[in-house]
Design a binder for these strands. Structure first.
Length: 436
DNA sequence: TCTGGGGTCCTAGGACCC
DNA sequence: TCTGGGGTCCTAGGACCC
């Protein structure tokens, strides 16, 4: 059997762990640039605050309800995510980290009559050791385990744990949910299913295989088979190497200037390269894209463009990638547009040990590699951007403002970020004990 | 004033190969 | 008049996920 475990209201729960004033209060966490709502505490959900709602549309409402609003603090969430994974590893070595707040675990070693008790022990331990409440679903396939987890949370009597251990309980579960509650079934997919006369998860599980394959492709077929208990989506205990690494941002203020875009692109490229080197990869190509504001009123000229620059040899050198990114930017940039967003994508990724050298390349890659390793080490110790290429600006925790004597227009807002309680010595939570 | 970011997978179509 | 069959690789775009 497989286990799916995920945190409840993850970002909001992380914030609550370290700030007692948030307890029992509605909390929402905003996306980068304080754009939209990306997490809500249970109290906030009870107020019918929508997910993905632009903040400016509901700012008044949130004030009226006295909702605590926070910018997202990924340093904190990443660390809490690692803590949860460490707890799960106590239960099995066969662990797949699926997202920042979700894992799949193999419970193949747990006898059927112990599944419920072991799942409850997992939930209790995670809650006690990290302060984060989690839900646990157990079933034969990933799709069913996700479904079980949904019921673990949705049905109060389940108390956060649901085991679908036999055909009867699976059948019962399939009758309790909507098609769009299934993993991989969006609104659009639901419409296609309806047009085939499939209106419920149970009908999908029992639909004719040939019809499903022909009309819904392999994607639909996999979902249907998984619902019948056949594993089509394997556990990935060893995380496969990334195929792309991306760093992009919406700007706090739109800009028309090439120089602003160049600075942004060089900063994003630097950041993407840190991620790349952390995984011991090198990039063979860089894509740069720029966007105008898609929410601008009608009549404002829209522009989206992307260009790729290939490298003769895959590289992990920020200087080389940033230079390639600027070359790509020159080709996408058009004067006269007001730019809202830009991004850098690294692809054709290969392991550094497997880079194919170029016959005519006489540079000293060993030296460049050592330089980058040193830069990364310094930045880990003294903070992101302590050492950087001159074309970039410090990235991350610093507030928007002046850099090298002039305003950085493009950096996003993050005015309400909580502290890095678990990763910075000077931001540790402080407890005051009442004296007797 | 204000509307996220980072991924994967599939499919179709084109270029090219033998 | 007629105009193969089988394949790879790449890219763009769309759907979907968290």
């Amino acid at each position: 059997m497989l286990v799916h475990v995920d945190a409840n209201n993850f970002y909001a729960s992380c914030e609550k762990v370290f700030d007692p004033t948030l307890r029992d209060r509605p909390v929402v966490v905003l996306s980068n640039n304080d754009g939209v709502v990306v997490a809500r505490s249970s109290e906030a959900k009870a107020l019918n605050i929508d997910m993905a709602r632009p903040y400016f549309q509901i700012a008044d409402l949130l004030r009226r309800y006295d909702v605590r609003v926070l910018s997202s603090n990924y340093t904190l969430y990443d660390d809490m995510s690692n803590r949860l994974a460490a707890v799960y590893r106590r239960f099995t070595d066969a662990l797949e980290i699926y997202s920042i707040d979700e894992c799949f675990l193999s419970f193949d070693h747990v006898p059927p009559d112990r599944l419920d008790a072991e799942a409850r022990r997992l939930r209790t331990t995670a809650g006690r050791w990290t302060g984060i409440p989690v839900g646990v679903g157990v079933a034969a396939t990933k799709t069913l385990a996700k479904l079980a987890n949904r019921l673990a949370k949705k049905v109060p009597a389940n108390d956060g744990v649901c085991v679908l251990g036999d055909a009867a309980s699976v059948r019962d579960a399939l009758g309790r949910i909507e098609l769009t509650d299934l993993w991989g079934v969006s609104r659009g997919f639901q419409c296609r299913l309806r047009s085939l006369g499939i209106a419920t998860p149970l009908e999908l599980a029992e639909a004719d295989s040939h019809l499903v394959r022909r009309r819904l492709g392999v994607v639909g077929q996999r979902i249907a088979l998984e619902l019948r208990g056949q594993r089509c989506i394997p556990m990935e205990v060893i995380a496969p190497d990334k195929q792309t690494v991306c760093c992009s941002r919406s700007f706090g203020t739109e800009t028309r200037r090439f120089d602003d875009l160049r600075q942004a692109v060089c900063t994003f490229a630097s950041q993407a390269m840190v991620k790349l080197r952390r995984q011991d990869l090198a990039a063979g190509a860089v894509t740069v894209f720029v966007d105008t504001n898609i929410h601008a009123p009608p009549g404002v000229k829209q522009y989206h463009n992307a260009r790729t620059t290939g490298l003769p040899t895959a590289s992990c050198d920020t200087r080389e990638i940033a230079a390639a990114a600027v070359r790509a930017l020159r080709r996408v940039y058009r004067p006269g547009y007001s730019y809202k967003k830009a991004g850098v994508l690294l692809h054709r990724l290969v392991k550094r040990s497997g880079v194919q050298p170029n016959l005519f390349d006489r540079r000293d890659h060993g030296r460049a590699g050592r330089l980058m390793a040193t830069v990364d080490r310094i930045n880990r110790r003294f903070g992101r951007g302590a050492v950087r290429i001159a074309a970039a600006v410090p990235f991350g925790m610093a507030p928007s403002g002046l850099t090298a004597g002039r305003t950085v227009h493009w950096r996003g807002r993050c005015d309400r970020r909580s502290r890095c309680y678990t990763t910075r010595w000077d931001e540790l939570p402080i407890c005051y004990a009442k004296s007797a």
